[in-house]
């Protein structure tokens, strides 16, 4: 294992994040605060409690998920796409590293950033609403696993994309709708039965539901199922990345 390489990649990626601190950290915090003002305070005051939780508090886990999913994808997809675009990737390809070091460096840095952002949003939210976390360990587990697996997904996206358009189209056309329809702002049980069934085909539902369970112990699907989905998603991404490096898909001619 080439530990120096992991450190080099991780350090460089974290430095890049610090250089763009406004875009990386201030932006997600601001947008989350806006969600709280609009959905929590303005609209939320008109909405009844959901399963004994005020609407403002109910959306907190969903908002954290929304942010860490989009941030993880955009960070790691950009981290690998940009060297491909500029040509500097030649160095990574000619370096004595396997996909393990590359992932620990790039995905580790992207996931770290997401976890930090998740923490910041959680503390920001605590200024607006009362939050109590019923199962902190499970909450942390979801936070880490989802950050890591969406960073992996972003990495795959960055490898696959051969233009800026592809890089942005997946988050906007696939991930955002799935997240918004995945119960960020509502409980699936509020939907008509037919749409509840449709929703169960949306993998994001399981992730948000499980994360929300760790806060309030109420969930749209069983917590075990949610955990299984997270691990399943993580495993799928790992297999794809392993295959990408094994075959050199879009990396090596």
């Amino acid at each position: 294992m080439n530990y120096y390489a992991i450190k080099a990649i991780y350090r460089t990626e974290m430095a890049r994040m610090m250089r763009t601190v406004v875009q990386s950290i201030v932006a997600p915090v601001l947008s989350t605060s806006l969600y709280f003002v609009i959905f929590g305070a303005a609209i939320g005051s008109q909405i009844n409690e959901i399963d004994g939780v005020s609407y403002g508090a109910f959306i907190v886990p969903g908002l954290i998920m929304l942010s860490i999913m989009t941030e993880s994808i955009s960070n790691s997809s950009f981290a690998i796409y940009f060297p491909k675009f500029s040509g500097t990737i030649f160095e990574l390809l000619s370096a004595p590293v396997s996909f393990v070091e590359v992932l620990l460096g790039y995905v580790g840095a992207a996931a770290t950033k997401s976890i930090i952002i998740g923490g910041i949003i959680l503390s920001t939210a605590s200024f607006f609403v009362d939050i109590n976390i019923a199962h902190p360990a499970i909450m942390l587990l979801f936070l880490v696993l989802i950050s890591v697996s969406f960073s992996l997904f972003g990495f795959i996206l960055g490898v696959w994309a051969d233009g800026w358009e592809k890089l942005t189209i997946v988050p906007i056309l696939v991930i955002m709708p799935l997240t918004f329809l995945g119960g960020t702002f509502y409980s699936i049980s509020m939907l008509p039965p037919a749409w509840q069934t449709v929703s169960l085909f949306n993998p994001i539902v399981y992730l948000i539901s499980g994360f929300r369970w760790s806060f309030y112990e109420n969930a749209d699907v069983a917590i075990g199922l949610s955990l299984a989905m997270v691990f399943g998603f993580l495993a799928t991404c790992l297999v794809v990345v392993w295959w990408v490096f094994k075959t050199g898909y879009k990396l090596r001619a």
């Binding site: 080439n2 120096y4 390489a5 450190k7 080099a8 990649i9 350090r11 460089t12 430095a15 890049r16 250089r19 500029s86 040509g87 500097t88 030649f90 160095e91 990574l92 000619s94 370096a95 004595p96 590293v97």
Partner: peptide, 27 residues
Amino acid sequence: LVPQELPTETFETPYNVCRFSRGLFGK
């Protein structure tokens, strides 16, 4: 390897990119 084109990390400094390369190659 010194490639033919001039791909560079636009916002990095020469010192940092050299330090990065050294680490990447396991030194």
